[in-house]
Simulated assay, not measured.
Amino acid sequence: MLPKGLAERELAHPELTELRMVETMHQRKAMMSDLADGFIALPGGVGTFEEIFEIWCWGQLGLHSKPFGLLNIDGYYDKLMEFVLHSREEGFVRPQYVEMLLMASEAETLLGAFESYEAPADKWS
C-alpha cells in the first residue's frame, strides 16, 4: 500500500507483484490493519515508530486484538523497551499494556509468541 503522493516521487518498487494505491497515509494504515493478522516492526525510523505505537494504542483501546511486536535485530529496540518499562514504572503505562508489546531477536520466536497472544480487555472494560 502506498499513498499516491509517494508513488509520484518514484518510491514505488517497479517489480512488486501487487501494489495497492491509496490517497493518504491514514487510508494506508487502516487498510494494512484490516488486512493483517498481526504486526511486526523491523528496525526502522520515525515512520516505523509511529506505526507501531499507533497499532499498540489501537490494541489498548480495543480497536483490534491482533498480536504485534518488535523484531529486535542486534538489540535495535533494547533502548526503546527500556523506555517502555520506565513508563510502566512511572505509572504511565499499565503492566497489561506493556505485555501486549511482544519482542524477540528471532523471527521464529516472535511468531511463536504471536500464536499464544491473548489481548487484554480493552482500556474501557
Rank of each mutant, 00 (worst) to 15 (best):
E10R: 10
L11M: 13
L11D: 04
A12Q: 04
A12I: 00
P14N: 04
E15A: 11
T17I: 06
T24A: 12
T24K: 09
M25L: 12
M25E: 00
R28D: 05
M31Y: 01
S33I: 01
S33T: 13
S33F: 00
L35T: 06
D37L: 07
D37W: 04
D37V: 09
G38W: 11
A41K: 04
G44Q: 07
G47I: 02
G47F: 02
F53L: 14
F53H: 10
E54P: 07
C57Y: 10
G59E: 14
G59D: 10
G59T: 07
G62T: 10
L71D: 07
N72W: 02
N72R: 05
G75H: 12
D78Y: 03
K79M: 07
L80P: 07
L80G: 03
F83N: 04
V84M: 14
G91Y: 10
V93I: 15
V93G: 03
V93N: 01
P95W: 04
V98P: 03
V98A: 06
M100T: 12
L102F: 13
S105H: 13
E106K: 14
A107Q: 08
A107C: 11
E108F: 10
T109D: 11
F114S: 03
Y117Q: 08
E118T: 14
P120I: 05
A121W: 08
